[in-house]
Design a protein around this nucleic acid. Structure first.
Lengths: 208, 208
DNA sequence: ACAAGAACGGAATACTTCGTTCCACTCTTG
DNA sequence: CAAGAGTGGAACGAAGTATTCCGTTCTTGT
C-alpha cells in the first residue's frame, strides 16, 4: 500500500479532503462557519486547526488557490491556438464550472489580504487582459468588454444556484451561453449603456 | 399646512421613510439587522416596532410590496401595445431598476411565507407567463425562455453592486442589455445547454 | 394650565451564533 | 509499552442582534 493505513495516511487524506470541503462549502456560502467545513469533510474541528492557525488563514489559502487555478485556465487559453471564439468560450466555461474565479472575489472582504494575494491577483488581471486582447484582435469579441466585466459576469453566474450541484452547473452554463452570444463581436449590436466597469470600482470591496 | 408639524405628521412621515429605508437596506443586504433600517431612516428602533410586531412582519410586508410592484410592471407591459420588443425590453429594465422582482426572491427563506404572499406570487407568475407568451407570439423572443429564467436573470443582475447606487444601476443595465440581446428571437442562435429551469427547482429555497 | 396618552430614542436584556481553545482518547512507532 | 502525533468534539468567550422597557417630548381635550 502506498500509505493506506496509519495516522500519517489519514492525515494526508485529510489534508486533501479538508481543502476540497472548504472550497465546496465556501463556494456555496462565503460566510459559512468553520464547523460546516469540518462537518462536510467528516472530520473534527481540531483537524482543521491543526493545519490552519485560523479561519482567516484557511480563507487566504483558498483564495490564493482559486486565483492560481484561474491563472492556469487563462494560460491554457493563451496557449491554445484553435478557433479564437471557441477558445474564448471554452475558457469562460471552464472558469464558471470551476468557480475558481469567483471564489476569490466572493471571499473578498471576509479575510485580510496578503501581499502575495495582491500580487497574484494582479497577475491574474494581466493574463485576463491578454486573453481579451487576443480575442478582440481576432475580431471575435466586442471591443467594449474588459477584464472587470468578466469579473462581474462570473460573479453574477455564481449567484445562480439550486439544490442540485449538477443542475446548478447546467443552469450557469445556460446563462453564460446567453451572455457569450452577446459578447461575440459582430457588433451590429447596439451600444451598451454606460461605460464599462473600472477595476477600482470593484476593488473597493476589499477595503472598507 | 397639510400636516407639517405635530406628532401625527411625524408619524405619517415616518411610516413612509421607514418603508423606503427598509426597502433600500434589505435590497443592499437581505440579512441586514433591523437597527440598520432604523439608522438609515434616522429614527429609533421603537419607531419600527410600533409599526411592525416583528422583523418577520416587516419582511413580509416588504416582500408583498415588491410582488405588487412587479405585478404593476407586468400589467403595464401587457397594456402597452407598442413595438413588441421595445415593450419587453422596457419591462425588463424597469424590473431591474426597481429591484422589486428580486427583492421578494432575495428575501426568500429569511421570513415565513404567508398565504397571501403565495397567492400574490402565483399571480405574478401567471402575469409573467402572459408577458412572455405575448412577446414570443410577436416573434421577438426566443421560444426557450420561461418565467423562471426571468427570475434567475433578475437575481443575477441584483448581485451586481458597487458602492455608488447610480453606478450600480448603470452596470446592471449594462449586463441586462447583453442578456436581452441574446434573448431576442432570431434564433440563428445555437441551442442553449440543458433544459430551462423549472419553477419547482427554485421554489425549493423557500422551504428548508 | 395640565393630565393623559401617543410617539419616540436608545439603553438593557436575552438569546444565538461562531471562532478558538482544551482535553481525553486512539493510534503509531521506536 | 511510553511518548507523542493526530483527532473528535465539548466548553468558553466574544459578537451580533431581535425584542423589550423606560424615561422623555410633544399633543390634545378639558
Amino acid at each position: 500500500m502506498t500509505a493506506l493505513s496509519g495516522r500519517k495516511a489519514e492525515a494526508a487524506r485529510n489534508d486533501q479532503v479538508i481543502l476540497e470541503s472548504a472550497r465546496a462549502v465556501f463556494m456555496a456560502d462565503p460566510n459559512a462557519p468553520i464547523s460546516a467545513v469540518a462537518e462536510h469533510a467528516g472530520v473534527g474541528i481540531s483537524a482543521l486547526y491543526r493545519r490552519y492557525k485560523s479561519k482567516d488563514e484557511l480563507l487566504q489559502k483558498l483564495a490564493l488557490d482559486g486565483l492560481q487555478r484561474y491563472i492556469a485556465e487563462a494560460e491554457a487559453a493563451l496557449a491554445d491556438d484553435g478557433d479564437a471564439w471557441t477558445v474564448f468560450a471554452a475558457f469562460m466555461e471552464r472558469c464558471v464550472d470551476g468557480g475558481a474565479a469567483s471564489l476569490t472575489r466572493r471571499l473578498a472582504g471576509t479575510f485580510t489580504a496578503t501581499e502575495q494575494l495582491n500580487q497574484t491577483g494582479y497577475q491574474a488581471y494581466q493574463l485576463t487582459q491578454r486573453v481579451l486582447d487576443r480575442s478582440r484582435e481576432a475580431g471575435v469579441l466586442r471591443s467594449d468588454i474588459n477584464v472587470t466585466d468578466l469579473s462581474l459576469i462570473f460573479e453574477q453566474l455564481q449567484s445562480v444556484a439550486v439544490h442540485d450541484a449538477g443542475r446548478t452547473g447546467q443552469l450557469r452554463r445556460r446563462y453564460l451561453h446567453l451572455m457569450l452570444q452577446s459578447m461575440r463581436s459582430p457588433a451590429e449590436a447596439g451600444e451598451l449603456p454606460g461605460p464599462p466597469p473600472e477595476w477600482e470600482e470593484i476593488r473597493r470591496r476589499y477595503d472598507g
